[in-house]
Amino acid sequence: MNLTLKIWRQNGPEDRGRMVTYQVEDVSPDMSFLEMLDVLNERLTLAGEEPVAFDHDCREGICGMCGMVINGVAHGEQRATTTCQLHMRHFKDGDTVTIEPWRAAPFPVIKDLVVDRSSFDRIIQAGGFISVPTGAAPDAHSVPVPKDAADAAFDAATCIGCGACVAACPNGSASLFTAAKVTHLGLLPQGQPERASRAKAMVEQMDAEGFGGCTNTGECTAVCPKGIPLDAIARMNADYLKASK
């Protein structure tokens, strides 16, 4: 199939950026979306133009490195799918596809579709851990964990930190990302001692980074490749309020 691509090109953080239109021919339906961009880049390179910069690494939907807004939807319209796992069979011959970077002030564009997500790391630094130095751990069976708590913690822990939640949120909020970690650790007995202080510190860091506030629109969950549920945010709020009392 043949496609028209409209891709955001921006030469660096200071550049204003613009949409540039490209044609790609002979796209196979079995290609992944990123492979389609590889083909475009190969052609641009040989034509002496700069290839489109985009982040990617594992290409199997787990590292969280890739991410672009495709036709206005973070990671494209396929649900529960990262950009690297999106395949071209979901597009039709003649389609026009618009590709933009994540848009959020705490995710400044580095180049083209590449953004800086180090704000996420700083949120984790603020408290997204259990303070247990290596070697200090008791035997793994010393504290049983109810299966449903372990399973629910796992569901929250599957967050890949891609940032689609922020990209999709009309408020540019990072609540789902932050809540996923607060929920994961807060559901486990090992996470209890730091539970309230963790939520408080992480939420405050999230606000300090310049993310917007949550209005529970649910856009984040809808695009989340791992389907982190919205009630994680309620858990985070509960822990936060407890810490603020």
Partner: peptide, 22 residues
């Protein structure tokens, strides 16, 4: 054996049985 202890203490949500054990 120490790795498992360390990971559990860090909050790694390993699969568990109904009795709460790994």
């Amino acid at each position: 054996v120490n790795i498992i202890d360390q990971a559990v203490a860090q909050g790694v949500p390993f699969a568990r049985e109904y009795g709460g054990l790994l």
